[in-house]
Amino acid sequence: MQSKIMSKARESIKEIFPFKVYTFQIAELLVNITKHVLKPKHEVLTAEEKVKLLKDYNIVDSQLPRILESDAVAHYHGFGKGTVVKVTYDSELTGNHVTYRCTF
C-alpha cells in the first residue's frame, strides 16, 4: 500500500480471510532488511528445539528476552506470539554471540 491502512480496512481483512494476512507499506519494502550487514541472523526454532532450550535453562518462554510482533524483522517473517528465535550476532568486537528471543 502507498499509505497507512485504516482500522476499518484492517478489520475487514481479518473478517474476509480465514488466514493471517500481513500488510506492508511500499516504503517498508524498498530495502530488504534481512540482507542488511548490521542485522543479526534470525532463525526460528522448531518445537523440539524450543522444548530442549527451555528444559536446558530450566525456564519458561516468558522468561526469555522479548521481540515484539511489531519489530521489523518479526513483521517481515511473520513471527507469531510464542515463537522462539535464535539471534546470532557476528561482530568484530564481540565475535559470534547467540541469544534467544520469544515473540510477544
Rank of each mutant, 00 (worst) to 15 (best):
L68H: 04
K20L: 09
I33E: 06
H42K: 02
V44P: 02
D61H: 05
M6W: 09
K41T: 09
R66M: 03
Y89W: 08
V44K: 12
T103L: 07
V85P: 01
P40A: 04
G80H: 08
T94N: 14
E15I: 10
P40E: 01
T94Q: 10
S62A: 08
R101G: 02
R101A: 01
L68R: 06
I33K: 09
I59S: 01
V51S: 08
Q2H: 13
K81T: 06
I59C: 01
L38V: 02
L29N: 07
K39G: 00
K81L: 10
S91Y: 08
G80I: 05
V31S: 06
F17E: 06
A47Y: 03
P65T: 02
R10W: 06
L64R: 02
M1S: 15
C102M: 06
L45A: 02
V87I: 15
E15Y: 11
K41M: 03
V21P: 12
S70H: 06
N96L: 15
R66W: 00
K52S: 12
K14N: 14
L64W: 01
S3R: 15
E69G: 09
I33C: 03
N32P: 01
H77V: 03
T99I: 15
V31A: 03
F104E: 09
A72G: 02
E15L: 15
K14G: 10
N58D: 13
E92V: 11
T83W: 00
E92G: 15
K14F: 11
E28A: 08
